[in-house]
Design a protein around this nucleic acid. Structure first.
Lengths: 124, 124, 124, 124
DNA sequence: GTGGTCTAGACCACG
DNA sequence: GTGGTCTAGACCACG
């Protein structure tokens, strides 16, 4: 995994795990890879992983079981809320950043439509 | 100005100045506020402002004139390119982040449309 | 049983058994539940129970009999002393912690009286 | 400072700072000693202090100012609530632990009164 | 000088 | 094997 060096790594790991849960790669009740395994997979230090997991635990996204590992919350509502929150955060950021550049609502939609079309063409 | 404490402040200042230039708040050839003034306005340390300006200078977005201050580039094409780059970066980030959450192209557009509509309603 | 995750579980199990003995749930000479049974009851690993019992044995609170199990000491004085010790430890901890918050002797008593009164009202 | 080796050090540091704030040793708006200074004073590692402070920050008890240090919240209500919470937690723990030993409400009060009297005598 | 983040490595409680 | 905590030491952003 590549990290953006402008943002704390533990923070990017949090977002990575958020995503795994939302797309179902990690289902409710699933055990996360061992902390040390995650550290190897992500080529970061164990403590950095711990920091990310620590925050996820305090957010009730994952639940630790002593000596067994960390598990994705069984509460599907929590996950559903998380998904909506992440999506809205993204939309909000795009919207506000483009508005600060004096781009109008309609232009934002057009730009996005164009962007998507271009990606399709490149792809095909 | 509020800063996101996950991202270096000097970096956020750079983006702030990019925006001022793109929306014409700072026109080509305009003199930027004095470094010390910017530091006061942004409630930030002078060194931090200097670091942001240093990078803008090496990117040719602004040009220093000895003893006079810093001036926005006269090259309108550079500014136009900058604007496109910033917009595309935003779109790309939204698009990729939502795709990582398994949101389809059409859904992205719908979500954005919904988001914009909701904002309008709140506003009015 | 719920465990405080800031304190070693074996330590909390020790206190749990202390209590069972003091309130007579486990009388002098009584056989303790089998280690494996305790582990199930407390939803804890057998090793953890063993560690707690090991310390209780070295404190002469319980006595192991080869192949038969562990038995509560017959020495009632030992139990009586244990009770006084536990109570005094509790009082000492309360007293010292509140004194560190600059609460006076009289205030401690008042606070406790108030606390007890409130509990009664909630109950009734 | 002496630490109880059954409880995480970072947790004991949190409580230590809680106390300093409640007794006014650290007043609202006061700057805390530098992280590295605290580490020296408490003879623990800087990271351990950081962990304690990190939690105090997320609890809004202290506020970090980038590059300047950490400051006690100016919100006296937050501090007042904290004090009440700490006292109630102590009372609750005493009460519940003694009740588990079958000590009655009246006995708890008597024991505490006796304990306080004894301490006075020893002192004088 | 001040806090924030990270790495490397260790030891412990628990399963 | 698994996570939790801690130490020692480093580098960076910011003041």
């Amino acid at each position: 995994m590549k990290f953006d060096d402008k943002i704390p790594i533990y923070y990017q790991i949090k977002n990575y795990i958020y995503r795994q849960i939302i797309i179902g790669e990690l289902a409710p009740g699933d055990k996360l890879p061992a902390v040390r395994q995650l550290a190897v997979d992500l080529t970061v230090n164990v403590n950095t992983v711990q920091r990310a997991l620590g925050e996820l635990i305090s957010e009730k996204i994952i639940e630790p079981q002593r000596g067994k590992g960390n598990f994705v919350t069984e509460d599907k509502q929590t996950i559903e809320k998380l998904k909506k929150l992440l999506i809205t955060d993204q939309l909000k950021e795009l919207y506000e950043n483009l508005h600060k550049l004096n781009v109008t609502d309609q232009e934002i939609l057009n730009y996005l439509q164009d962007y998507i079309n271009e990606r399709k063409q490149v792809q095909s």
